[in-house]
Design a protein around this nucleic acid. Structure first.
Lengths: 363, 363
DNA sequence: TTGTACGCGTTATCAT
DNA sequence: ATGATAACGCGTACAA
């Protein structure tokens, strides 16, 4: 259904008694026209209810003042949050956000990305560094500037903004190890087509290995993002492996599930069992003060991606990779080593809390 | 930064040895060209990596195959969920979503809506029926078809898709009253510029009044959407009003906070105290089986809004208002009336459970 | 500071 | 079934 025949720029020009180009300038480059003229044009705009025609504008100027974002899904709060921040950043700069999601389907990702490029986005925000070769090729040839988010792009090929899973994992691992934990499991989201989830597991394993603690596959469980699934997953782990004394969760929804399973088993956290996790939306942390989390600045990632893209469009230079800081949040006081799920004999824990600038003093 | 000089339609035409118009048709109306010709064009498209220029297309065809959505924020999971469903629906139909949020600021809402209309959206999805007169005027004159979501538009002026707060409230109230509760409070999100929150409170009050139970202002607390705030709010209510035996929460984040406060006070739910709520994302319900909720089909709302808009654009008729069904979820078994926060003497509850198709048999 | 005139890449109309 | 050509509404050299 075509838009109603509404006022066009030449209507404005006529009504203001100026030429088309003057009217155009008065709107897009007000500084270049005489104040009186500008005012007459503005009055005409208001009178006629003139709304610029974006397509015509884009066609003539070869830019759409539109940026595209391709996310896996908004149903994951971390993407909702970063997308919200991105949208806010763009709106403040007079840009509009074109949004697409692909629900972790690489083919869909290519299709929706192509759709955004067809719509003439001036730039693109993508998630992760895991993309199909076809998509990579398409991006390369279409020549649209883009930012990868939620990754630091291990290959170092592209502009990106993310945080260090390595650092976060090391901090969590160090904390748990310092508390005396040796039997540690991992609860992860599905890792297929999801480099973020994969990275988290890999880095946690690395961090543990760095301290001589192996993380066998049997102690890593992948599950869907939901409280109930998280809970069920920990239940399975504990049944198969009663020696466990701690679990590291890929995100806070799963961590919440883990907490519930502990509660159901009468395991006090962290006295009997420790739960740590990547904290995306501060939900699990709000529920339990006994949780150790690495807080991820979700909004910051979206905001910076937008700002960086806008800067690049304006011809400014930006660092190719940008790391946003994470915070280790220790809410539990350190105490004796937990007995673990089996409630067996404990060793004493070294009193050696993790030190970090972000640490909340709470003793 | 203008897009790189890439292949245009006349490149394709030349490469395929046909005219511009044939190339155009081969792409947008394949049925109208000879199969051989069509194939030659398609080959040329693939060879050159041709991507149609949306702006030019929109300019010439007067439609952008783009729909706009204006939401308060994606940080509220209900809007993330409905937006996700909307996006999925549109993508399947070859449409793209332009997204804007305004964070409950009416001026921002007008500005971003205007931006979307400038970008030439073929239709618009808005949230609620609470909009500034300026926005109403703008919508009327701009002549873009739109759907209001999360409301049934009490005034009946506009196309809308939502659910009945009245029905949901009556069900919750009836359930609590049948359990014997008489001292009931309400936990709500902020109601300023938010007709949905306001409606929920009003309808709950109405439903209670319908059974002779008043809901004084002092028993309604408005707070920000967060677990911690919900918890603090219930704490405040209980301290000021120890006779309370139940609370109805505007959404499940607040309900989760309420559950935590109950736990902290040693109040068993629902034995000592009942918590009911509007359940948007099934979070609180996942955490506690003791919760009574009215489950709202968030995704359905976004999906239907998209489908309705697409249908209207295709010239089909749709009902002006569409009500999506809610489900009353009873997870708690009925038992003796709770003693309330003050743990004072209880009366017997009538054994008269709410009947509803959606009821989960669990006795 | 303002106006003229051309072009942006496609669709749609009208012939053929 | 295909081709020529006129819009579509605006930005922007370039000229004045």
């Amino acid at each position: 259904m075509p838009r109603k025949a509404s006022a066009r720029l030449d209507d404005v020009a006529r009504s203001a008694g100026v030429s088309l180009s003057t009217a155009s300038r008065a709107i897009s480059e007000p500084g270049l026209v005489h104040p009186d003229t500008r005012e007459r044009v503005q009055r005409a705009v208001a009178m006629l209810g003139y709304v610029p025609h974006g397509a015509a504008r884009a066609l003539a100027s070869r830019r759409s003042r539109t940026l595209g974002a391709v996310v896996p899904t908004l149903d994951n709060p971390i993407f909702a949050s970063s997308t919200q921040a991105l949208q806010r950043t763009l709106a403040a700069a007079g840009y509009t956000l074109l949004l697409a999601s692909h629900e972790y389907d690489p083919e869909a990702e290519l299709a929706v990305t192509r759709a955004l490029v067809e719509r003439g986005v001036d730039g693109l925000v993508l998630v992760g560094s895991d993309h199909s070769p076809e998509l990579a090729r398409f991006l390369a040839q279409s020549n649209v500037p883009f930012e990868l988010t939620w990754t630091l792009d291990p290959a170092g090929h592209h502009h990106c903004v993310g945080f260090s899973n390595r650092l976060a994992s090391i901090r969590m691992a160090q904390h748990l190890l310092d508390l005396g934990h040796r039997e540690i499991a991992v609860l992860s989201g599905y890792t297929a087509n999801n480099d973020r989830a994969r990275e988290r597991v890999a880095r946690v394993r690395e961090a543990l290995a760095g301290r001589g603690i192996p993380l066998p596959e049997a102690r890593v469980v992948e599950t869907a993002f939901s409280v109930a699934r998280g809970r069920a997953a920990l239940r399975g782990l504990l049944e198969q492996d009663p020696k466990l004394t701690a679990v590291i969760c890929g995100n806070d929804i799963l961590a919440l599930g883990a907490l519930l399973e502990c509660a159901a088993r009468g395991l006090a956290v962290p006295a009997d069992f420790s739960v740590a996790g990547f904290d995306d939306i501060e939900l699990a942390a709000e529920v339990s003060p006994a949780l150790t989390t690495v807080r991820i600045p979700t909004a910051r990632i979206g905001q910076r991606a937008g700002e960086r893209l806008l800067a690049r469009l304006a011809g400014k230079r930006v660092a190719k990779a940008e790391e946003v800081p994470v915070e280790l949040m220790l809410r539990a006081s350190t105490g004796p080593v937990p007995a673990g799920a089996a409630r067996r004999g404990a060793k004493r824990a070294p009193v050696n809390p993790v030190r970090t600038a972000a640490r909340k003093p709470r003793r």
